[in-house]
Nucleic acid binder design. Structure first.
Length: 857
DNA sequence: CGATCCCGCCACATT
DNA sequence: AATGTGGCGGGATCG
């Protein structure tokens, strides 16, 4: 349909005509019918002439559903009927009554058929979620309204909400510009930040009592007047035009929509009940708490919710509270936002942590981005607008916003795609942490400490724990790390690299970047998808790794709070451990080491240096851009760049969420080149295509795998490889506990119990990797793979392995959420468990909020 | 009967 | 004044 519409739109013929045409056609059909048995005509105009008409009639009579369908097809045009009737008098004769009845029925399409949600879906179906930057899609309200067969008023309802999220923008009188979801992430990020400011406090209490809410609400009000609110939100998109628009009264629907979304983003549970939302919104708006007002507010919220639901950002749920079951909505959209301001701040210990990072990133991004010129251009204006809004308090945030917006665009895009792909509600981003952001403290505090402690305890045996960077080093060399498991022996034999760092880095030899070609064509689609994933990842790493992990559910218990830390973490862990370790590890390490530092740096300092980050960015960009081909190119470039800094070859590195579990992966694009070679050289015995390094933060343990890839250059057998790789990953993910080494073929994991599952990302990547390796564009794929469902497999592995050990309770939660994808089958269960447990650990409040459906146990 | 929310009046903003 | 926007809430449906 979409295509159809588009083509049609181009011509710009008034849609309105269509209906007419249809009617005419129908009219014609009847006539034809006239010749044939009339009866048919009455009923199903759609297929009057069909011999089976009678049958259909019977069926329809029997089943209301069928009838409805037919009706729907017809749409609701009494007019048509009238015409027909005229033409085919005879036919009607017999059926008159029936026909009339039918018409009525037809006319009265069930209310649902006309629901705003459905309408919105139709609306959205007409436009691509991620339109090419080049093409500008303009939306004519009249046109759309006529096409969709609704009054314009309804279209306003939809557009206003979409506009609040910057999916569209008003360009002129009856004209809107479709932007798609490219900026969605950024927008959400911004909203989240704003929400934190406004509602941060509340969230904690949130569901709790209205009273609290009120209080907060008032407070908020003070800080942020309504008028301000409007601007805040609005600012971003509108580039130039916005100014005038702002003046307008408050578009309550728009503002409400933004606030509503903010509530979700700020909420730890990601669930907001209608009444609470209404109360909060009312408070802000007005002091008086009219019952009628409340009622009206709720009505509006339903309108908004319908649109958001159509966007797959929220879903309806029910929360059972003391009082009973209350309608509520759960956020199922992206939660984490890329680097965002938060991280930067965290770092800020220095001076402007945030800015620095962001800047760095952005800067690099821009360079790479060339393609996205459009974005760049747009941004400036937005920034200005933005400033207006936001936070009264912190100037820095403003900056952040700006840069964020820029940055985000790229990253976000990727992320979003992911979302779409997975579409899982499950996937959520963790970032709920938001609150944290502000504090630079976090940065300072090494995440690892907070978060990790537990882990360490668990895995004391492992030498690696972050704290011990030095230790980490050791492990790399020998089996030392293996202590717990029998594996050590293996390790010793084989060459492995161990990295203590919390984050893992994977280096893959980029076998062939070329891959693109192969997969290229076909792969584009895939590539794109993947890229997005990567992007998402990336985004995570930069901004907040840890938080990232956690997504949805929440994070595991205790640590949740820590999450924010995670963001910060990367750096610290990095520095000490990675650097040190590397040397210790030896040759391979050196390379690796560089990588680490880089990674860390990027996240942390935002050093431009961090080549990797750049890469990632670029990748993201590519992804955004769209073309796989481009991507491949970009990658190459990137890789080159990276190479300069680091080794040679290209690799893709994915920054993980920083937190614990995050792993960094680097792939060498070409095995031949070197990246891999490194491994090989270092690890003579095994040519290792990939190196995985656990981040120090995780402390978990260092893992290194030599991929099975026997032949350095040739991608070799993916199958085996992949399998092995996957295995490895899985282990690492969890495990902070022990270092795992993977041999080319066999995995060593056994002994180590992965910690849990958290596998979140890491695992996933692993899976993909293997494929990627096989495929040409490993890098891309990897990313994607990572993001995607693969995790599942990993998870499973972990589970099995982990089961025995089960440290789960401890850490899993956080990261898991991140990766949870819809796909993860079995995992879900584990997940849930975690969530439940975690949740409990979480504040009681949250629990209250819990949705009945999701309810943990 | 409460949850939803369609429908469209009508006020305000723009043109 | 005409037309675009969109607040608003009655009351119909749904579950």
């Amino acid at each position: 349909e979409n295509i159809f519409d588009r083509s049609r739109m181009a011509p710009k013929t008034p849609i309105k005509n269509e209906p007419v045409d249809l009617s005419k056609q129908k009219g014609c059909t009847p006539e034809r019918n006239a010749i044939t048995p009339v009866k048919l005509v009455d009923r199903p105009q759609p297929d009057p002439w069909t011999p089976t008409a009678n049958l259909k009639m019977l069926i329809s009579a029997a089943s209301p559903d069928m009838r409805d369908r037919e009706k729907k097809k017809e749409l609701f045009r009494p007019i048509e009927n009238s015409e027909q009737s005229d033409t085919s008098d005879l036919s009607q004769y017999d059926m008159v009554e029936d026909s009339t009845v039918d018409e009525f029925e037809k006319q009265r399409p069930s209310r649902k058929q006309k629901s705003l949600g459905l309408l919105c879906q139709k609306f959205l179906a007409r436009y691509p979620s991620y339109p090419l930057s080049t093409e500008k899609t303009t939306i004519s309200l009249d046109e759309v309204a006529s096409i969709l067969g609704v009054e314009r008023r309804r279209i306003y309802d939809i557009v206003n909400v979409l506009e609040s999220l910057h999916l569209v923008s008003r360009v002129a009188k009856n004209q809107y510009c479709w932007h798609g979801r490219h900026n969605l992430t950024q927008t959400l990020r911004t909203l989240q930040e704003a929400g934190e400011l406004q509602y941060g406090d509340l969230m904690l209490l949130q569901h709790k009592e209205q009273d609290l809410e009120y209080k907060f609400g008032e407070r908020k009000k003070d800080t942020i007047p309504d008028s301000q609110d409007g601007p805040l939100l609005d600012f971003s998109e509108p580039d130039c035009t916005s100014a005038s628009a702002n003046s307008r009264k408050d578009k309550s629907l728009r503002i409400m929509s933004q606030k509503f979304v903010m509530l979700f983003l700020v909420s730890k549970t990601k669930i907001v009940t209608l009444d609470i939302a209404a109360k909060i919104l009312i408070e802000e708006t007005q002091d008086t708490v009219d019952h009628s007002k409340f009622k009206t507010k709720v009505r509006r919220l339903y309108d908004i919710a319908n649109v958001l639901t159509s966007l797959s950002l929220i879903k309806k749920v029910h929360v059972t509270e003391e009082r009973g079951r209350k309608p509520a909505f759960k956020w199922i959209g992206p939660v984490e936002f890329p680097g965002k301001t938060d991280e930067p701040r965290g770092h800020s210990p220095t001076s402007d942590p945030l800015p620095g990072m962001q800047r760095g990133a952005s800067a690099t991004g821009k360079q790479r981005f060339t393609r996205h010129t459009s974005f760049n251009g747009a941004r400036p204006c937005e920034e200005a607008k933005r400033r207006i809004s936001s936070e009264p308090n912190s100037p820095r945030q403003e900056r952040q916003d700006e840069y964020c917006s820029k940055m985000i665009n790229l990253t976000t895009v990727c992320r979003q795609e992911i979302e779409e792909d997975t579409r899982n509600p499950s996937i959520k981003s963790p970032l709920s942490l938001l609150p944290v952001p502000g504090d630079s403290d976090f940065c300072v505090n090494p995440l690892p400490q907070a978060a990790f402690p537990v882990v360490q305890a668990d895995v004391p045996s492992l030498s690696l724990p972050n704290g011990v960077s030095s230790q980490a080093v050791h492990p790399s060399v020998p089996a030392a790390s293996k202590t717990e498991n029998g594996k050590p022996a293996l390790l010793s034999n084989q060459p492995f690299l161990c990295f203590p760092s919390s984050s893992l880095l994977m280096l893959c030899s980029g076998l062939q970047e070329n891959m693109p070609p192969g997969p290229g064509t076909a792969g584009k689609g895939s590539a794109e998808t993947t890229s997005p994933n990567c992007g998402s990842r990336r985004s995570v790493s930069p901004s907040t790794p840890a938080g990232y992990d956690e997504p949805p559910a929440k994070k595991p218990s205790v640590e949740q709070s820590d999450v924010p830390l995670s963001l910060v973490v990367p750096k610290k862990p990095f520095e000490s451990p990675s650097a040190e370790s590397t040397p210790g590890s030896g040759c391979t390490s050196a390379e690796n080491i560089e990588a680490f530092p880089l990674d860390l740096a990027s996240p942390v300092a935002a050093d431009k240096e961090s080549t990797k980050p750049l890469d990632s960015q670029e990748q993201e960009k590519w992804s955004q851009n769209k073309d796989p081909d481009e991507l491949s190119l970009g990658k190459e470039h990137l890789s080159k760049e990276n190479a300069n800094q680091l080794f040679l070859p290209q690799y893709l590195y994915v920054q993980p969420a920083a937190g614990l579990s995050s792993f960094n992966f680097l792939f060498s694009a070409n095995q031949a080149s070197g990246a891999v070679s490194l491994a090989a050289s270092q690890l003579p015995s095994l040519s290792v295509p990939c190196v995985v390094v656990p981040s120090a933060a995780l402390a978990s343990f260092p893992l290194v795998c030599s991929p099975t890839a026997p032949s350095p250059h040739s991608p070799a057998p993916e199958g085996s490889f992949s399998a092995t790789s996957s295995v490895n990953f899985s282990v690492p993910g969890l495990a902070p506990t022990a270092p795992i080494l993977i041999g080319p073929t066999a995995v060593v994991a056994p002994g180590v119990p992965p910690a849990q599952p958290e596998p979140q990302q890491p695992p996933a990547p692993a899976l993909h990797l293997s494929p990627a390796l096989t495929g040409p564009c490993s890098a891309l794929k990897l990313d994607s793979s990572v993001c995607l469902g693969h995790p599942v497999a990993l998870l499973k592995l972990q589970q099995t392995s982990s089961a025995p050990l089960t440290p789960k309770s401890i850490r899993p939660a956080r990261h898991e959420a991140f990766f949870k994808t819809p796909g993860s089958l079995g995992d879900p269960v584990a997940w849930k468990k975690n969530e439940g447990n975690q949740t409990r650990s979480a504040s009681s409040v949250q629990r209250r909020l819990e949705i009945s459906s999701t309810s943990p146990d």
